[in-house]
Amino acid sequence: MSLLSNHPRSVKLLRWGIRDYAPSWALQEELFKSVEEGKLLRRNGQTVQYPVNYLITVEHPPVYTLGKSANAANLIYPEQFYIEKGAQIFKTNRGGDVTFHGPGQLVVYPIFDLDQFFTDIHKYLRFLEEAVIRTLAEYGIIADRSPGETGVWIDPKGLQPRKICAMGVRAARWITMHGLSLNVNTDLRWFDYIIPCGIRNKAVTSLKEELNREVPLQEVEEKLLRHFKELFEFQWHR
């Protein structure tokens, strides 16, 4: 049975550390189903409590993921090339094209029942972007959105536009899964082997690249979580 709460917008934080992509995806699906079950119990009058939402942070070993609308040609090389490099490849049920997850990257998967927040996917995506933008501002990095290109960018309208955070989500029955990946200390060479998010002629960057120093991943995580809490106005579930 789904974990339930007396309070709407109760979010349980799950820090998964370093975890392979496949079991992470499977666990997301399980949590998604638990939230869905909780919604049905409440809708059918079997409980007055709300399903608990989840916010997952994780760091994946090297993996390339393709969204539902991905163009396979954006994987520049044959699959064997990536395997020999030590990376896995997965086709997923999220939105978006191809992206990379790997060491030094902060990945965040919100499993939110948007009926408890707002039923607006576009607003949801903008809130995800805003949480990252506010986090980067704490490091003196001015980031912004790029019209028509979901994610967070630096200098999106300038001479050197570069993406620092990719996003790809899935929502069904107003429950979300998948999420965002913020390059903190990521080895950017991994992006040389793909056309990231299907966007040509634009670079990818990281906090390390912009600041010319490594940044503790946990430090960035704490800042990002604080901005999530402020924007979505939830309470942590204990």
Rank of each mutant, 00 (worst) to 15 (best):
A172N: 09
T57E: 08
L224H: 11
L211K: 03
R134W: 00
E230L: 01
V35W: 09
I175D: 03
H60P: 14
E37P: 12
A73N: 08
G198V: 01
V220K: 12
V169H: 10
Q160W: 06
F191H: 05
Q218V: 14
L217T: 14
L136Q: 00
F118L: 02
F32Y: 03
V132H: 12
T150F: 07
I141W: 00
P216T: 04
E129R: 01
H122Y: 09
D115Q: 11
V58D: 11
S24C: 15
R226P: 12
L217G: 14
D192P: 09
S2D: 05
T47A: 12
K163G: 06
G95A: 08
F127L: 10
P147C: 02
G38D: 03
L231E: 04
E138M: 00
L40Q: 12
H178C: 03
K85V: 14
D115E: 06
V63Q: 04
S181M: 04
D97P: 12
W174Q: 07
H7V: 08
R170V: 08
H101Y: 11
K208N: 08
R170W: 00
D20V: 07
Q235K: 15
A172R: 13
R15W: 14
V152P: 00
P23T: 13
F232E: 01
G45Q: 06
S34G: 03
D115A: 05
I56F: 15
R145T: 11
L211Q: 04
F234T: 04
Q160F: 06
Y109A: 04
Y82K: 10
A73V: 04
R15F: 13
R213Q: 11
L40M: 13
D97C: 12
G45M: 06
V98A: 09
L27A: 13
Y77N: 13
D120Q: 02
I142F: 03
P156V: 03
N93R: 03
F112H: 02
L31S: 11
H101A: 11
I18M: 14
R238C: 12
G17L: 08
R189K: 13
F117Y: 15
E209I: 04
G151I: 02
E37K: 02
F112A: 10
R9S: 07
E59P: 12
E79G: 04
H178A: 08
S34Y: 05
V58M: 09
K12L: 06
E222L: 10
A72R: 11
Y77H: 15
F112P: 11
A131D: 00
H7Y: 09
F232L: 02
L66H: 06
A166H: 10
L31E: 08
E29C: 10
Y21R: 13
P110T: 01
W174H: 05
Q49C: 10
T119E: 13
E138P: 00
E29Q: 14
E214K: 15
G104D: 13
